[in-house]
């Protein structure tokens, strides 16, 4: 590590008291931000300062701080998870910002993700999409030996490429249409790659797509902005897969 570098940053943070309340930007300045801090640690420091001044801290979601749980959800300088590709907000470090920079922070915005408070939103719509069909119906104890069905390595690797979705919702947040197609497509693609998923293949894609619609997500216009902001780099081909699966399900 190089010697400690300190930068000054100006923050414009979205504050909103509750779901119905009117939101606004509040400005803060942090004079000495260690560039080795993570972005969320920088917010921790700000919150500590606010509380020392007996003010209300900024609410934001986070848990693992390792880029795997999908809790963190900040739109930083206009981009979900901020400027670094393949990096969740919790893994973003302050060294990627300039001294004196103004950083704006907004919540995910979508009808299907209502704001709870400040930067915290409700993403239960994703659970409901999964519940509509994002599983293989196998009751506990009903499984054959794990090696009973061989699965080719390329198929299994490709399933894994789609399975790594962390469910953060950045795809929705970044999409100009607020579409949840990448999220849904990733699960459909994973399960359609695997023989275990075959029996429910048709039912699954139709149910999940219907649910997506019911939740109020927009259509996909193939902007591929979702792929660009996805912290685990899921390809837009997930969406293409979902569509072919859908056609096969309807016609076949």
């Amino acid at each position: 590590m190089s010697s400690t570098d300190l930068i000054k940053v100006h923050l414009k943070v979205w504050r909103q008291d509750g779901p119905q309340a009117k939101g606004f930007f509040e400005d803060y300045t942090l004079d000495e931000v260690n560039t080795h801090m993570s972005f969320l640690e920088m917010l921790d420091v700000l919150n500590e300062r606010l509380m020392k001044d007996k003010k209300e801290p900024i609410e934001f979601d986070h848990d693992c701080r390792e880029g795997i749980c999908g809790s963190c959800n900040l739109v930083i300088n206009g981009v979900p998870h901020g400027p670094e590709m393949l990096t969740a907000a919790c893994q973003l470090h302050m060294r990627h910002f300039k001294d004196g920079e103004t950083i704006t922070i907004e919540p995910w915005r979508a009808t299907a993700f209502p704001i709870i408070k400040d930067l915290v939103v409700d993403r239960n719509a994703f659970d409901r999409i999964m519940s509509a069909g994002g599983y293989i119906s196998v009751s506990t104890g009903n499984a054959p030996d794990a090696n009973a069905i061989p699965i080719s390595k390329p198929d299994s690797d490709s399933a894994m490429d789609y399975a790594v979705c962390i469910g953060c919702g950045a795809c929705v947040a970044a999409c100009p249409n607020s579409s949840a197609s990448l999220f849904t497509g990733a699960k459909v693609s994973q399960l359609s790659r695997l023989p275990q998923g075959a029996p429910e293949r048709k039912k699954r894609v139709i149910a999940m797509v219907d649910q997506m619609e019911k939740e109020g997500f927009g259509d996909c216009s193939n902007f591929a902005e979702c792929e660009a902001v996805c912290p685990v780099g899921i390809s837009i081909t997930a969406i293409a897969n979902m569509r072919t699966e859908y056609v096969k399900a309807v016609l076949g």
Partner: peptide
């Protein structure tokens, strides 16, 4: 052992050999 069976049946993409086994 039953755990591995159960997880594979659910679609958990464990790493595999080229022959298709785990």
């Amino acid at each position: 052992n039953s755990i591995i069976d159960q997880c594979v049946a659910q679609g958990v993409p464990f790493a595999r050999e080229y022959g298709g086994t785990l």
